[in-house]
Design a protein around this nucleic acid. Structure first.
Lengths: 239, 239
DNA sequence: CAGTGGTCTAGACCACGGG
DNA sequence: CCGTGGTCTAGACCACTGG
């Protein structure tokens, strides 16, 4: 079963930090090694165990900190807004635009949006943070006719959901969504500041106007599994 | 970036094993250490990297083997049959009954099945294997009136979907499903033969009769994320 | 600059599985 | 019995962060 020193230590630390608020700095590897009288390698194994269980987050040069996962529910009823969903969960979302350029719509995107291939579309690449930690990275495809001045709009409002409501005059709702868990590879791992192989979500979503059922925009988003607890729910509720 | 010896080794091994059929035995830690001229710890780190990326599976006493994840799509259209879904993906599913007892229906289950609390229900606990490797473990709740002789039926047929079709005369379809990724804790880790903290799915599903829309049974299932690639899809398809 | 986590070495003993 | 992976020690150097 457990019966290994580093798991005992992990369990002890786990109990200690359970009540601490997220973001609290806790003992590092050397401190744990000294306190429990083990080598640094064993102490490291214990702290890595906590990291695998999403209980702590470690940053080289800074230290080890208590952590929590933010719930991110994906359902047909909830509006597909990253910022709103995270605020509802009590987190502080922040989104940084990496690039926003107008390009001819690729075939694959046109197919999903029921739009004409080659028509003008904004390709928006953004990184999102929760509580100042990188959590998500990906691309949104917004037809230029829906929001002609997207870069300008993004300077005052971070939420794409809000922009298409206010400027485009549509109410986004999920039309189709697909999600799976993957191991982060090179580019994704870099953008999310995690090691390669760390678990990440890949979520693809086509959003439509609630009134007209017309596809409005497409998102392709990678999400850190240690930062966000994606909960997928579909069908008639159990109640 | 990468720039560490063990990641270089992991990348080299990854390329080597890419073409091998799943289940092929490959070099162990000592062999890798000798071949690349590094310590066993570095070789171990490389092989663990491959394990995190779901490329190999390691078993103490036996060795390291190439691996693959089986796609397990969860959609409203596909029938909620574990065995059929896995066979469609080209895997060989096998299910072993751990226990099957008739109990009074708990309140939480009754609520989800729209049934009377305390009425007779089978509580079926099973483990499932794909290609003879443990992949899933969990509980199914089947009202006794639907399948009065469930233990007898299970002796000849493994698929619960098939049994309720043939004996209960209903056609199961997903009514409601909820899924999230968690870190395996004690009991789950034991049943799935993985270390604590390994990534696992928790999938809860209420299935109903396609014709009458009456809830038929409830499943609560833990799934090894390294063995099964769960893909959810909801809403009107992109095509 | 000191402290952190990331990597690495060269050993060691153990539990487990299969011949 | 031997080979496997799981755990552990006692060191070491490095890259990165913060003051």
């Amino acid at each position: 079963m457990a019966a290994s020193r580093y798991r005992e230590i992990a369990a002890a630390l786990s109990a200690e930090i359970a009540a601490l608020p997220p973001g609290t700095k806790i003992d590092g590897e050397l401190a744990v090694a000294a306190r429990f009288g083990v080598s640094r390698a064993a102490a490291r194994a214990a702290v890595q165990e906590l990291e695998r269980q999403f209980l702590v987050r470690r940053v080289r040069g800074r230290g080890t900190f208590t952590s929590r996962r933010i719930d991110y529910p994906i359902t047909s009823t909830r509006p597909p807004s990253w910022s709103q969903t995270l605020r509802d969960a009590g987190a502080l979302p922040r989104t940084v635009v990496r690039s926003c350029v107008e390009v001819p719509m690729p075939q694959a995107v046109a197919h999903k949006l029921h739009a004409a291939e080659g028509s003008a579309v904004w390709r928006l690449q953004r990184r999102s943070f929760t509580d100042d930690l990188p959590a998500s990275w990906g691309t949104e495809w917004v037809p230029a006719e829906t929001v002609p001045e997207l870069p300008a709009a993004l300077r005052s409002v971070e939420s794409l959901d809000r922009i298409v409501r206010d400027v485009g005059g549509v109410v986004p709702a999920r039309r189709w969504v697909r999600a799976s868990m993957e191991a982060a590879d090179g580019e994704v791992a870099d953008e999310l500041a995690i090691g390669p192989g760390a678990p990440v979500w890949f979520v693809e979503s086509v959003n439509q106007d609630a009134a007209t059922a017309t596809p409005v925009y497409l998102t392709e988003r990678w999400i850190r599994a240690d930062a966000i607890r994606v909960v997928f729910e579909a069908g008639a509720g159990p109640s």
